[in-house]
Amino acid sequence: MTFIIGPSGAGKSTLLKLIYLQMRQSRGHITLFGRDTSQIERKEIPALKRRMGIVLQDFRLIDHLSVFENVALPLRVAGSKQEDYKEDVLGLLKWVGLGNRYHALPPTLSGGEKQRAAIARAVITKPDILIADEPTGNVDEGMGRRLIRLFSELNRLGTTTIIATHNTALIPEDANTLSIEHGQITGTINGEQIG
């Protein structure tokens, strides 16, 4: 699990956008799944995105779809039938603490519930990489710590996790950290070395 830290405007979100192919770099190299991202064609992007889970600060839940349907959306888009993914989605919702809220619409959820629903949607397809941009930005500290524990658990289960945050207090001691300022990497801390 890697944290990208830095003040607002340092370039954390931009770096993440470059990784999850929302933007293209004008120079330099980013290697994603063994490929230089500048060489990836537009038509290949959807398939690569399906190998990544993305969690953003504004949750990006669809208001007219229930929590269940929001979380199941990537599977539905991939053409899976509801009966095939129903148990997986419900199981995941229970795991993130939304087992009894599967039928709720996003506008009725709290900030923490929305963020957990967004995380569940990001991991429902078992992505190789989980990218989160300020995932604790809209929740209180207690919920922030619970979310970070959730990410740690996902990482422990085998998902590469990259999290951008300006809240360094939430970073576990054993995590890898990359600090950025004005678009430049200013330091790295290897969690395992510290731990």
Partner: peptide
């Protein structure tokens, strides 16, 4: 991963 998680948490 999700299947493993689901297996441990699914209830009818």
């Amino acid at each position: 991963m999700v299947s493993k998680l689901a297996d441990t948490h699914i209830q009818k």
